[in-house]
């Protein structure tokens, strides 16, 4: 069974990579929009994790959403897929560690994942699982960056 799935994925890696590209790209573009618009509440989200001081949180709040936007758009377009996937893998690793550490420390804070400020979306193990799922997609794209309908051949 496992071998069949593996063989299927390898035979259709172009199509699977296309789906992974578009799904990841859309998620990260969507996630970036509110953070770009409202950097200050997003900085508060970052501070609430009690990992970074305010000055670094402000820089992260300025930089991170644009990094997500760039990576998302380039992935959708199929440009520099491996490099984008590598960046997203690192980002997702950081997100997973930050959320898990907040949960372990018992912090009752908003995630800051898609909405900024005091949103309803609180940190939770579900977020960790979602990020892990996205991590699988980004790791796949690092191994199989070539796909259909990519601007970069």
């Amino acid at each position: 069974m496992f071998e069949k799935i593996k063989l299927f994925l390898q035979n259709h890696s172009g199509a699977v990579s296309l789906i992974a590209r578009v799904v990841l790209g859309l998620i990260f573009v969507y996630a970036s929009i509110e953070k770009i618009t409202y950097p200050e509440p997003f900085a508060q989200n970052i501070i609430a994790y009690e990992i970074l001081p305010q000055a670094l949180a402000n820089i992260a709040a300025i930089w991170l959403p644009w990094l997500e936007m760039f990576c998302g758009l380039l992935l959708i377009a199929g440009i520099w897929v491996r490099a984008n996937a590598a960046i997203l893998s690192i980002l997702l690793t950081i997100f997973i560690i930050a959320i898990a550490s907040a949960l372990i420390r018992g912090l009752d804070i908003s995630c800051g994942c898609f909405e900024v400020g005091d949103s309803e979306a609180m940190v939770g193990w579900r977020r960790v699982i979602e990020d892990a799922g996205m991590m699988i997609l980004s790791l796949w794209l690092m191994k199989f960056p070539r796909s259909h309908w990519a601007l970069e051949k």
Binding site: T37, Y38, P39, E40, A55, I62, P65, W66, F70
Partner: peptide, 19 residues
Amino acid sequence: SLIAGLAFNNFNPGGVSLL
């Protein structure tokens, strides 16, 4: 992305201070 973020933050009325 860093340059874009800094540039946009400079013009964004709700932008944050670097410090």
